[in-house]
Simulated scan of single mutants.
Amino acid sequence: MSLSDPQVPPWYKQFWPWFLIALLLSSVTFSMVYLAFSIRYFDGSVPDDYYKEGLAINVQLEKQQRAEALGLAAELRIDATTGDVVVTLDGDERPQRLDLALKFPTDGARDRALVLTHTRAGHYVGTLERNLRYRWYLQLQPHAEGASGQPEWRLTGEAKFPRETSVRLTPGL
Rank of each mutant, 00 (worst) to 15 (best):
D111W: 01
R97Y: 14
V115S: 15
D48T: 13
L132G: 05
G91M: 08
K103N: 11
L100A: 07
R112L: 11
A113S: 15
R66I: 13
V59E: 14
E158Y: 01
Y50I: 15
E53W: 14
L138Y: 01
E53Q: 15
D107S: 04
E62V: 07
I57A: 12
A109Y: 09
G108C: 00
I78G: 04
A113E: 14
Y124V: 10
Y50V: 15
R135W: 04
L55D: 11
N131D: 09
W136S: 00
R135T: 15
G146M: 05
D84L: 12
V86Q: 12
R110F: 01
E129I: 06
P105T: 02
D90N: 12
L140D: 10
R97A: 15
K103S: 09
K103M: 09
V86L: 05
V125G: 08
L72N: 06
F161H: 02
V85G: 09
E62P: 09
G108Y: 01
L61K: 09
G83H: 01
A73N: 13
Y51A: 12
H143D: 03
L128D: 03
D107N: 14
T119G: 02
D84W: 07
Y137M: 09
S148N: 14
L132H: 03
G157S: 08
L72I: 04
I78W: 05
E129G: 12
Y124S: 09
L132K: 00
E145M: 07
L155K: 08
L128A: 03
E129Y: 04
I57H: 09
D84Y: 00
Q65A: 15
G71V: 04
L155M: 08
S148C: 03
L155H: 10
E75F: 03
P95Q: 10
D48W: 07
K52G: 11
K103V: 10
A56M: 12
L55T: 03
W153S: 12
E129V: 09
L98H: 03
G71N: 06
T106G: 07
P47F: 00
R112W: 03
W136T: 00
A80I: 01
P142A: 11
A113D: 15
Y51N: 11
P95G: 11
D92C: 06
R163T: 12
K63S: 06
Y51T: 09
L128W: 13
A121Y: 00
Y50T: 04
L70P: 11
A144P: 15
L140V: 06
T106Q: 12
L116W: 09
T127H: 10
E158Q: 14
E164H: 02
